[in-house]
Design a protein around this nucleic acid. Structure first.
Lengths: 207, 207
DNA sequence: CGGAGAATCGTGATTTATACCTAAAACCGG
DNA sequence: CCGGTTTTAGGTATAAATCACGATTCTCCG
């Protein structure tokens, strides 16, 4: 049912020498690689948010690495980004990190260093994706609820008794029971506790 | 009951000129300031984790800013840290940011820049503290439970019915009911949903 | 127009949870 | 060893939730 896609290392760098070198390095350790010459090219190609991580050059003609990062964030991408840069620029590094980059390393670097960070990023991505998949499943179930069922759900999760909910929504207690039962069914909740868990998971996004 | 302490800006810098200048600047905008000459001095003085933020020099004789940050993290401090540094050093900035610093700015900087970031940090701290206070209250209640009550709580939150819990723990259903009632009382939970919320809040630490 | 899905309400039986009373073992620290 | 806490348990009554089986509107869509 849930397909665990193999993670891919995406490389975006305008320097073809760097692209080739990284492709070789990553290939040599058995990691699937895809390289792109510009941020725009990557954006155009990667519309389906595949698992992996992104090794991104900061300084590029056209769209800079930071700009690409912003665009990816707007797209709600969770792809961990490792920046690489030739010139040490502290404000840039700070901005990148504040925007969620997992790492920011300067050239020249040792191959093993980069590989270590890539592996960390891939692990992080796998974890994020598991959480996201879980949340998306719950969201789908939530969307299958009718407006009325959703109202009842909210009050149930708020801890109100059926009688109170009936009063709040100006319904008979019986009707509330029906909605509530259907909510439990549609949400595939085995218990009230489970239902609350699920709703909190998507409404109160965590770590 | 809950006392909202006024936030303090802590400054740790070995350069007395910087300390004096920052003290004046912050005083001029009405922010309480306390300055320290070294990381150790700050650690010794601030054992009670007061609200505010920390403006921290990276390069200092003895304990470096990064070392102080590590020690504060070990102490589970949530004080937001703004690093200031004279020399741009990207790896240092990255390390600081990865360790949770909110900002990392280079000298020279405009006063207003620093003030802006300090205000951001203070807001963040206030938010963190509200969450932390909430969690600590819940933790205290959890600690007031007897071991048996805690067991029952866990199973209740797992969504099991009293009958099942009784079976699992080899108790009469009646006893489970008693423990459960006492749990609700001690946790000050108004409903099962509320109880689940509280337990998740401390066990599944969020954003 | 006929039917599907949504929303509404009822009765009665059953299961669960709570509330309030009492109380006896077991255990632990002074 | 006494006294408090913890853990255990029963009885009775009420309240809440679940379920079984049925039923009436309404809208929207082909």
């Amino acid at each position: 049912m849930i397909k665990e896609q193999k993670p891919t290392v995406f490389v975006v760098d305008d320097d073809s020498a760097v692209r080739d070198s990284l492709r070789l390095l990553l290939k040599s350790v058995g990691l699937p690689v895809e390289v792109f010459e510009s941020g725009q090219e990557f954006l155009d190609a990667e519309r389906d948010d595949r698992p992996g991580c992104l090794v991104l050059d900061i300084r590029m003609p056209g769209m800079s690495g930071l700009e690409l990062q912003v665009k990816l964030n707007e797209r709600h991408s969770i792809l961990p980004i490792i920046f690489i840069t030739g010139h040490g620029d502290v404000p840039m590094a700070v901005e990148a990190m504040q925007a969620g980059a997992v790492d920011f390393i300067q050239k020249p670097f040792r191959d093993q260093d980069l590989l270590d960070r890539i592996n960390q990023a891939l692990e992080k991505d796998a974890g994020s994706r598991r959480m996201l998949a879980e949340r998306n499943m719950i969201r789908k179930r939530l969307e299958s609820l009718t407006p009325r069922e959703r109202e009842v759900l909210d009050l149930v999760v708020a801890g109100k008794a059926n009688k109170v909910i009936a009063g709040d929504l100006n319904l008979s207690q019986r009707t509330v029971e029906i909605h509530r039962a259907r909510v439990m069914e549609k949400m595939e909740a085995h218990s009230l506790a489970h239902l609350v868990r699920m709703v909190l998971e998507v409404e109160h996004p965590e770590a």
